[in-house]
Design a protein around this nucleic acid. Sequence first.
DNA 1: CCTCTGATCTTCT
DNA 2: GAAGATCAGAGGG
Length: 203
Amino acid sequence: MRLDRAFFARRTTVVARALVGQTLVRVEDNGARTAGRIVETEAYLGPEDRAAHTHGYRHTPRNHAIWMHPGAAYVFFTYGMHHCFNVSTLAEGKPQAVLVRALEPVEGLDRMRQRRSKARRDTDLCSGPAKLCQALGINLTHDRLDLTRSPHLWIARTRRRAHPASRIAAGPRVGVDYAGDWAARPLRYCLHGSPHVSPPRPG
DNA sequence: CCTCTGATCTTCT
DNA sequence: GAAGATCAGAGGG
């Protein structure tokens, strides 16, 4: 069952933690499905957060999705070649989001290997924010999509008995050294011990 | 495992 | 004009 608006309309740190263990599902126009269990997320806390794209209330065409209703997909293009996938949280007009950083592949692995030909091992398929977008074929056409309604992209509620909250480790976010004292905050959430988490591995 | 570097181009200043 | 919520490959331990 698909996660609904209420799931995303909560404090961003709560959503980021709760997303670990849920399943990101992608369906292409031809019906091909790829999916993965979310094993790593990061919370971006809006205007106050020096690492966030909405720091200082910056509102541009690129980051507009963060300002939209909770559950809106925010996909951005960076480094001239990579995409990253986020979900808007909290409330419309409150620009906070969760970055999905890694997945454990669970469906459509052949398709993922096709699109990620450089991946040597299956643990390299989705172990990074741009890798998972490449594996699932997520790009700018998915920016601003409503994940509670889109037939192409959504997050499925997944039983987490095997992954209780106590096994989620929090640590500093990756690649935000420029963010001053915000860089050290433990806003990154990883499924403890998963080989699919992106480097640097916690612990 | 780690560190360092080049790739590549959109976005915003 | 500069920076960037990254990745892959090379080299060293």
